[in-house]
Deep mutational scan, measured.
Amino acid sequence: VKVYLPNKQRTVVTVRDGMSVYDSLDKALKVRGLNQDCCVVYRLIKGRKTVTAWDTAIAPLDGEELIVE
């Protein structure tokens, strides 16, 4: 899953069964001094942002793009 992060940064996270968006992005956010409490995650669908819950399973999102703001 390709993830666009604040400050024009981006990362790619590996999809693993049983993991949530929260778990999958935890390290990427912490390395950048961010956490899930201060950010909102969106799914990018056909160029439009849709709010996605942090506890959403990451497996069904394989191949999609997320935006964290």
Score class of each variant (00 low, 15 high):
Asp26Phe: 08
Lys2Tyr: 07
Gly47Asn: 03
Asp62Val: 15
Thr11Tyr: 06
Leu25Ala: 01
Thr11Gln: 11
Gln36Asn: 04
Ile58Gly: 03
Gly47Leu: 01
Thr52Asp: 00
Ile45Cys: 05
Arg43Trp: 01
Ala53Asp: 13
Leu25Ile: 04
Cys38Tyr: 11
Tyr4Asn: 15
Arg10Gly: 10
Gln9Pro: 01
Val21Ile: 04
Lys46Trp: 03
Lys8Glu: 13
Gly47His: 01
Lys8Ala: 12
Ile45Arg: 11
Lys30Leu: 04
Leu44Pro: 02
Ser20Tyr: 04
Leu34Gly: 00
Thr11Val: 14
Asp23Phe: 12
Gly47Val: 02
Ile45Asn: 05
Asn35Lys: 12
Gly33Asn: 05
Tyr22Asp: 02
Val31Tyr: 07
Ala28Gly: 02
Tyr42Cys: 04
Gly18Lys: 12
Leu44Asn: 11
Ile58Phe: 13
Gly18Leu: 01
Ser20Lys: 06
Gly63Met: 08
Val21Cys: 03
Leu25Gln: 00
Gln9Gly: 07
Arg43Lys: 09
Val12Pro: 03
Thr56Glu: 15
Thr52Pro: 00
Glu65Met: 07
Trp54Glu: 00
Lys2Gln: 07
Ile67Asn: 07
Val15Ile: 11
Gly18Ile: 01
Ala59Pro: 04
Asp23Lys: 11
Thr50Pro: 03
Leu29Ala: 01
Tyr22Pro: 00
Thr14Ile: 12
Lys30Phe: 04
Ala28Gln: 05
Tyr42Gly: 02
Cys39Asp: 01
Thr52Glu: 07
Val15Lys: 02
Val40Trp: 02
Cys39His: 09
Arg16Leu: 12
Val41Ala: 07
Gly63Cys: 12
Trp54Pro: 01
Asp26Arg: 14
Val3Trp: 01
Val31Ser: 15
Tyr42Asn: 10
Leu29Met: 15
Leu34Phe: 12
Gly33Glu: 08
Asn7Val: 01
Asp23Val: 06
Glu69Asn: 03
Val51Leu: 14
Pro60Met: 15
Gly33Tyr: 01
Thr56Tyr: 08
Asn35Tyr: 13
Glu65Val: 12
Val15Cys: 13
Ala53Met: 04
Asp62Ser: 14
Ile58Leu: 13
Val40Gln: 15
Asp62Phe: 04
Cys38Asp: 12
Cys39Tyr: 05
Asp26Tyr: 09
Arg32Tyr: 13
Arg32Ala: 15
Leu34Met: 10
Lys30Gly: 06
Pro60Phe: 13
Leu44Asp: 04
Val3Thr: 00
Leu29Phe: 09
Trp54Gln: 01
Gly18Tyr: 04
Asp17Pro: 15
Val3Phe: 04
Glu69Ile: 02
Leu5Asp: 00
Val40Ile: 11
Asp23Pro: 01
Arg43Ser: 07
Tyr22Gly: 15
Gly33Pro: 00
Gln36His: 09
Gly47Phe: 00
Asp55Asn: 11
Arg48Ser: 07
Thr14Asp: 09
Asp23Ala: 09
Lys46Asn: 15
Leu44Ala: 05
Asp37Gly: 08
Thr50Ser: 06
Asp55Lys: 06
Val15Phe: 13
Val15Ser: 09
Arg32Ser: 10
Gly33Arg: 03
Ala59His: 13
Arg43Val: 03
Thr11Trp: 03
Lys46Met: 08
Val51His: 10
Ile67Val: 09
Ile45Glu: 08
Glu65His: 08
Lys2Pro: 05
Met19Ala: 09
Val51Glu: 10
Met19Pro: 02
Val41Asp: 02
Asp62Met: 12
Cys39Ser: 04
Gln9Asp: 14
Val41Asn: 02
Leu34Pro: 02
Gly18Phe: 04
Gln9Trp: 05
Thr11Cys: 12
Pro60Lys: 14
Thr52Trp: 07
Ser24Met: 12
Val31Arg: 14
Asp26His: 11
Asp62Gln: 14
Gly33Ala: 04
Leu25Met: 04
Leu34Ala: 00
Val31Pro: 06
Leu61Gly: 09
Arg48Asp: 08
Pro60Ala: 15
Asp37Asn: 09
Val21Ser: 02
Ile58Asp: 01
Asn35Ile: 03
Lys30Trp: 00
Glu65Trp: 05
Glu64His: 07
Lys8Trp: 06
Val41Ile: 05
Thr11Ile: 12
Val40Arg: 10
Glu65Asp: 10
Glu65Gln: 09
Pro60Arg: 12
Leu34Thr: 00
Lys2Trp: 07
Gly63Val: 11
Val41Arg: 04
Ile45Ala: 07
Val68Asp: 13
Arg10Leu: 12
Asn7Lys: 07
Val51Lys: 13
Val15Pro: 08
Tyr4Lys: 15
Val51Thr: 07
Asp23Ile: 05
Thr14Pro: 13
Val41Trp: 04
Pro60Cys: 08
Lys2Thr: 14
Trp54Lys: 02
Asp62Trp: 06
Arg10Thr: 15
Pro6Cys: 04
Leu61Asn: 06
Lys2Leu: 06
Met19Phe: 07
Leu44Val: 11
Glu64Leu: 13
Gly47Glu: 04
Asp23Gly: 06
Lys30Ile: 04
Val12Trp: 12
Val1Glu: 02
Leu29Trp: 04
Leu29Cys: 00
Val31His: 05
Cys38Lys: 15
Arg16Cys: 13
Gly47Pro: 00
Lys49Gly: 02
Ala53Arg: 10
Gln9Lys: 12
Asn7Glu: 09
Ala59Thr: 14
Val40Tyr: 08
Glu69Met: 03
Thr56Pro: 04
Asp55Cys: 05
Val51Ser: 07
Lys8Asp: 10
Asn35Pro: 03
Ser20Gly: 01
Lys2Phe: 05
Leu5Lys: 00
Val13Lys: 00
Leu44Gly: 03
Tyr42Thr: 04
Val31Asn: 12
Ala59Gln: 13
Lys30Met: 07
Tyr22Asn: 06
Arg16Glu: 13
Val40Thr: 09
Cys39Gln: 00
Val1Cys: 09
Pro6Ser: 08
Val15Asp: 07
Ile45Gln: 12
Gly63Thr: 10
Arg16Trp: 06
Arg10His: 14
Gln36Trp: 10
Glu65Ala: 12
Arg48Phe: 08
Lys8Tyr: 08
Cys38His: 13
Ala59Glu: 12
Leu61Ser: 10
Ala59Gly: 14
Leu29Glu: 00
Ala28Phe: 10
Val15Asn: 06
Val41Phe: 02
Ala28Cys: 08
Val41Gly: 01
Leu25Asn: 00
Met19Tyr: 06
Val1Asn: 03
Asp55Gly: 09
Ala53Glu: 15
Tyr22Ser: 15
Thr14Gln: 14
Lys2Ser: 09
Lys46Tyr: 06
Ser24Leu: 12
Leu25Thr: 00
Val13Arg: 02
Val41Tyr: 01
Leu61His: 07
Arg16Thr: 11
Met19Ile: 06
Gly63Gln: 05
Ile58Lys: 02
Lys8Val: 03
Asp17Ile: 08
Val15Gln: 03
Ser20Arg: 06
Cys38Gln: 13
Leu29Arg: 00
Arg32Val: 14
Arg48Gly: 05
Glu65Lys: 10
Arg43Met: 00
Asp26Ile: 10
Lys30Gln: 08
Lys46Val: 02
Gln9Leu: 05
Val31Gln: 13
Lys8Arg: 13
Leu34Arg: 00
Ile58Arg: 01
Ser24Thr: 13
Ala53Trp: 03
Lys46Cys: 10
Asn35Met: 07
Ser20Leu: 01
Val12Lys: 11
Lys8Ser: 11
Lys30Asn: 05
Val1Phe: 06
Ile45Gly: 09
Lys8Met: 11
Asp62Cys: 15
Cys38Val: 12
Gln9Ile: 10
Cys38Pro: 03
Glu69Asp: 08
Val31Thr: 14
Cys38Trp: 09
Ser20Ala: 02
Val12Gly: 00
Leu34Tyr: 05
Cys38Thr: 13
Leu61Trp: 07
Cys38Ser: 14
Leu5Gly: 00
Ala53His: 11
Val13His: 00
Arg10Val: 15
Arg48Ala: 10
Val21Trp: 04
Leu44Met: 15
Val41Pro: 04
Asp62Leu: 12
Gly18Ala: 05
Thr14Arg: 13
Thr11His: 03
Asp55Ala: 06
Val41Ser: 05
Val41Lys: 03
Thr14Tyr: 06
Glu64Cys: 04
Ser24Tyr: 05
Arg10Asp: 07
Ala28Tyr: 08
Gly18His: 08
Ala28Ile: 08
Ile58Cys: 13
Thr11Ser: 04
Tyr22Lys: 14
Lys27Gln: 06
Leu25Glu: 01
Gly63Glu: 05
Asp17Val: 09
Asp55Thr: 07
Tyr4Ser: 13
Arg43Ile: 00
Lys8Leu: 06
Lys46Gly: 14
Thr56Phe: 03
Lys8Pro: 00
Gly47Arg: 02
Lys46His: 08
Leu34Ile: 05
Lys30Val: 03
Arg43Pro: 02
Val40Ala: 13
Asp37Trp: 02
Asp62Tyr: 07
Thr11Pro: 00
Pro6Gly: 05
Asp37Val: 03
Cys38Leu: 09
Pro6His: 03
Asp26Ser: 11
Asp17Glu: 13
Ile67Phe: 15
Val31Lys: 12
Lys46Leu: 05
Val51Tyr: 08
Tyr22His: 14
Thr56Gly: 09
Asn7Phe: 05
